[in-house]
């Protein structure tokens, strides 16, 4: 049984078809990558999966249950953990407070006993704190436990956010550009962390990521979105060298310099293939300015 089964999801915003007929499937224990140029609809797909957006068509199934009409907090409580592209943390609180808050659905006492303060509550609060500490140690952030989130560097916040999502005890970890704001070295460490999390916690991961070496290293399977449509899917190497993917990203590079190309060993043939690829190439290129116009 797939952990996550996104079945032909489509969503429109006014005149913009942000997703059309997108299907994605994530099996248990898999690390699945979701790539695509800016504005392709990756974050929108996350929002449809987690309930922030209601797709116009299609269903989302999670752990065998149709959750298309389930509210966000219930999906989260049932094991959908996600991070946000712009860092989703309670920034006025400290790191450990975020991790304790994130355990909300797992708290064993009810609101009233919490406010009255029974002995069981005190005991349980200590357990919540201990568990938060364990998670921070797992991702090497224990020394930041009492720091206020607002003062931390962006890359660190991204890591803290991931720790907070881990504290929700997720079945699937959905990461929206986890390596943004990190240097190459930190990104490499992030890769280690993700692989370790899967090994140690048995996590399933779906991640949006632009950093190609990271995607190639950790992902078992990659989906590529472009203009709201699934361009291709498959093992990371295949997807990276897929002519249409290369073209989609080259168009991007021409505009914003954010491309697949930097991956050192295999980039030469890929770039070549993209440049000389007549059927898909020109068509894509012609659509570029149109998209930019829509966005602006």
């Amino acid at each position: 049984m797939a952990v996550l089964d996104v079945d032909s999801v489509s969503i429109r915003f006014g005149g913009l078809q942000a997703l059309s007929d997108v299907s994605v499937r994530v099996q248990e224990w898999e690390i699945v990558g979701l790539i695509g140029p800016n504005g392709a609809g990756k974050t929108t797909l996350f929002n449809c999966i987690t309930g922030f957006y209601r797709p116009n068509e299609g269903r989302v199934r999670f752990l065998g249950r149709d959750v298309t009409d389930v509210p966000i907090h219930e999906r989260a409580a049932s094991g959908m953990g996600r991070t946000f592209q712009q860092v989703g943390l309670v920034k006025g609180a400290t790191v450990i407070e975020n991790l304790i808050t994130a355990q909300h659905a797992k708290v064993a006492y009810d609101d009233l006993s919490g406010i009255v303060g029974t002995p069981a509550v005190w005991r349980h609060e200590r357990e919540l704190r201990d568990r938060a500490m364990q998670i921070l140690e797992l991702v090497d952030l224990a020394d930041l436990a009492d720091r206020r989130v607002a003062g931390l560097p962006y890359g660190t916040m991204k890591n803290v956010e991931m720790a907070a999502v881990l504290a929700t005890d997720p079945e699937i970890l959905m990461l929206d550009e986890p390596s943004s704001g990190m240097g190459p070295e930190e990104a490499h460490e992030l890769g280690d962390t993700l692989l370790r999390l899967r090994r140690e916690l048995g996590l399933t991961i779906l991640m949006i990521e632009h950093h190609v070496p990271l995607v190639v290293r950790v992902c078992d399977h990659v989906y590529c979105l472009n203009f709201g449509q699934l361009l291709t899917e498959g093992p990371p190497e295949d997807v990276r060298n897929h002519p249409e993917v290369v073209t989609a990203y080259l168009g991007e590079e021409a505009e914003e310099g954010d491309a697949l190309a930097p991956a050192p060993p295999t980039s030469a043939p890929a770039a070549e293939g993209g440049g000389g690829d007549a059927p898909a190439g020109p068509g894509r290129r012609r659509r570029r300015p149109l998209r930019a116009g829509e966005a602006g």
Partner: peptide, 17 residues
């Protein structure tokens, strides 16, 4: 408190805002 600061984050922590 979490809902005051950021409803989106709060709900993704499993909190019925």
């Amino acid at each position: 408190s979490a809902a005051r600061e950021n409803e989106q984050v709060a709900s993704s922590y499993g909190i019925p805002v």
